[in-house]
Design a protein around this nucleic acid. Sequence first.
DNA 1: TGACATCTACGAATGATTTCGTATAGTCTC
DNA 2: GAGACTATACGAAATCATTCGTAGATGTCA
Lengths: 127, 127
Amino acid sequence: MARPQLRPTDAELAILRVLWERGASTVRQVHEALADTRETGYTTTLKLMQIMADKGLVTRNETARTHVYSAIAGEEQTQHQLVRDLVDRAFGGSAAQLVLRALSADGTTDAELREIRKLIDDYREKR
Amino acid sequence: MARPQLRPTDAELAILRVLWERGASTVRQVHEALADTRETGYTTTLKLMQIMADKGLVTRNETARTHVYSAIAGEEQTQHQLVRDLVDRAFGGSAAQLVLRALSADGTTDAELREIRKLIDDYREKR
DNA sequence: TGACATCTACGAATGATTTCGTATAGTCTC
DNA sequence: GAGACTATACGAAATCATTCGTAGATGTCA
């Protein structure tokens, strides 16, 4: 284990997403969940998850022969960190600009826009 | 020059941001603009910009001995692409979720929240 | 012209990321 | 228990991103 809180790489993020969705999982389970999108061998997934354990992105329970992995940071926390990172790197620190670009993404439906607006109102009230 | 539209790396994005702000610039100008944040040698910046020209991220005018570089993709287009990429990799395609995380970023001021809300209203009207 | 500064080109080292093959050991079934 | 299956560990290759040093060409100016 080493430094915590490092931007996860692409491959690591894909694995984290499986762990967030499924909860604690074995390498086999993660690998199968990724099979749709990735075409890599089992040992590749294994190696990545071992590295992630070294980095402190996941923990594993080694009680049984088949180890069981869990994400350490939660989904929200990691997403938050990734957004902040992108805001800093590409938007000069302006979250509003990022939101603007997000809105102009093709897939944004009107329902989604209303949802976002509601989120903002809720959020402002909480302050 | 090779494949266009590739996610720019961190160092590349920093250079692009200078080119967007200053417009067409020499390596020297870019390097000096980056001097505040980066502590790398001149030839590092040069090499990066040469690579970016290979990748098709920038073009350069070689008429004069001192080449003049320009970003090919605009700031908006690149930001859009980066956001979309992050939405896909970390938010399962939901731009709304990304916006939610952006809002809970520490630095988001109330003024910014109002601004974002206004952006959404404007954007909905445009539809 | 000669000394010096500045520019590009390019090779190469380094470190991180991703990938896989092989070795080794535990488990299961007949 | 033998053979098949499945797991971890680990070394190593391939690729990419970043960094810099050096060489050689060009420009400046006293």
